[in-house]
Structure formats: C-alpha cells, structure tokens
C-alpha cells in the first residue's frame, strides 16, 4: 500500500470527512488520493487561514475536518490558530509538509523551517514529526488524540519521509 493510501485510509477510518488543502509538491499524492475518496469532501483553499475557517465551520456542522498545507502556512495562520481554532476549542489535524529539512533544494525554504517547531511550540500545539515511513504508523493514534482533546495538532512530514524530492 502506498503511503498516500495509508494516510487517507487513516483519515477515513477516523471519520474525517472534510479536508481543505493548499498544495505542496510533496503532498500531491495525498491530495490526489483525497480527491478520489467519496467519504471526503475536498475543498481546495486559496490561503491556509481561509482553510482553517472552512474547517471550523465544517466541525460545527458535524463533520470532522483536516487541513493539508506547507509549513510556510504556520507563518500565515498564527492569528487564526490562536483566535479561532484554540480560542473556541476546535480539533484540527494539520498534515504539513516540512519543507526546508534535509534534502531540501530550495534555500529559502530553510528560513521558515528553522522557525516551524519553535512557533508550534510557542503556540502550545502538539507536534509530531514523521521522518521515516514507519512513523506514519502513529497517524491513527494522532487523529484519535486530536479529536479527543479538541486542539489543533501538527504532523510535520519531511523530505526523507516522502522519499526525497
């Protein structure tokens, strides 16, 4: 089974039915897989804070949401995470491509990578880092944890996890 199929299977098994995405090359396979699943309403967003607003609405409408985005989005969404997702206590699994890590070809991506974990830590967002493919074995537990505690939770997936560029 491909890693993309495994990830989306875990989302579906945890009743995630509304996924918003802002694309990244590394996440393209997961996004394709989500688009194909009847169990998931896939709604591409133009910006990640917009996507978090969509997810907040879907959650209040009774559908479990998730967002898929790049780590650069952490810089974009600090205010939304704090004043919407956290302030109203809403769950939000965030599957994030961790650009700027080992094997990164684009220097500018490193500039945001060095702040990513510090920002997530400062925001008190539980954070998991997938480096080897076997790390994804914990995804099911991470999703259950997210919907148990009603918090945004970050899953950082780096280039080594995705098998390079």
């Amino acid at each position: 089974m491909s890693i993309n199929t495994k990830i989306v299977d875990d989302l579906v098994a945890n009743d995630v039915a509304f996924v918003t995405t802002v694309p990244c090359k590394q996440l393209a396979g997961v996004i394709d897989e989500i688009e194909q699943r009847d169990e998931i309403y896939h709604i591409p967003a133009n910006k990640e804070d917009e996507g978090m607003g969509l997810c907040a609405g879907a959650f209040m409408g009774g559908k479990r949401p998730a967002i898929i985005m790049q780590n650069t989005a952490i810089g974009v969404t600090v205010n939304t995470l704090v004043t919407l997702t956290q302030f109203y206590r809403m769950p939000l699994p965030m599957l994030i491509s961790f650009r700027g890590e080992l094997k990164e070809p684009v220097a500018c991506q490193v500039e945001m990578a060095v702040h990513t974990k510090a920002l997530l830590n400062q925001l008190h967002i539980p954070t998991y880092h997938f480096h080897k493919q076997s790390d994804a074995d914990e995804l099911d537990a991470i999703l259950k944890y997210t919907f148990m505690c009603n918090k945004p939770v970050a899953i950082l997936t780096d280039a080594t996890f995705w098998g390079g560029y």
């Binding site: 509304f18 709604i43 607003g53 907040a56 609405g57 879907a58 409408g61 205010n79 919407l84």
Partner: peptide, 15 residues
C-alpha cells in the same frame, strides 16, 4: 480572526 465569517459559514453550510 478578521475575514473568516464567510469561510466559517461556507464550511458549515457544506457540512
């Protein structure tokens, strides 16, 4: 969270 009323409402309507 200025700006997200329309997004929250759309997510809610779709769900």
């Amino acid at each position: 969270t200025m700006g997200l009323s329309s997004s929250i409402g759309l997510g809610l309507a779709l769900a």
